[in-house]
Simulated assay, not measured.
Amino acid sequence: MPYEWVNPATGAPDHSGALSHPPHLLGRNTRGGRPASPVGGRQPPAPPATGAPSAELHLWPYRSLPRRGFVAFIGITFLLILLPLLAALGTPVLWGLLPFVLGALALMWYFLQRSYRDGELLEQLCLWPDHMTLTRHNPRGPTQHWQANPYWVRVMIHPKGGPVENYLTLQGGDREVELGAFLTPAERATLRAEVMAELARLRQV
Score class of each variant (00 low, 15 high):
A12E: 11
G27C: 04
R28C: 08
N29C: 08
P8C: 09
G27P: 02
H15L: 06
T50C: 07
A12V: 12
S37D: 01
P23D: 06
V39H: 09
Q43H: 11
G41P: 04
A36V: 00
P35V: 13
A18Q: 01
A9R: 08
N7S: 02
G40E: 00
P13R: 10
G27Q: 02
H24N: 01
R28A: 07
P45E: 04
L25E: 01
T10Q: 12
A46H: 11
P23G: 14
D14H: 06
A46S: 14
T50R: 14
A12M: 13
G51A: 15
G51L: 08
L19P: 13
G40F: 04
T50F: 10
L19M: 12
P23A: 13
N29W: 06
T30F: 09
S16G: 02
A36S: 05
T10W: 05
R31Y: 08
A46P: 06
G33F: 10
P48F: 05
V39Q: 04
L19C: 15
S20T: 15
S20M: 11
G11Q: 03
R42T: 05
P44R: 13
R31K: 05
Q43M: 12
G27A: 05
N7T: 02
A18I: 00
P45M: 07
V39P: 00
A12N: 04
S37E: 01
L25H: 04
P23V: 12
T50S: 12
L26H: 10
A36W: 00
P38W: 02
R42W: 06
G51R: 12
G11T: 02
G51Q: 10
P44T: 14
G40H: 01
P48A: 09
V39L: 10
R34F: 15
P35H: 15
P13E: 06
Q43S: 09
R28T: 07
P35K: 14
T10M: 07
A46M: 12
P44K: 13
N7L: 05
V39G: 08
S37V: 00
S20A: 13
H21R: 11
P48M: 07
D14A: 07
H24G: 04
P13Y: 01
P35L: 13
N29A: 07
P35F: 12
L19R: 14
L26C: 09
V39C: 09
R34D: 15
Q43T: 05
A36D: 03
G51N: 06
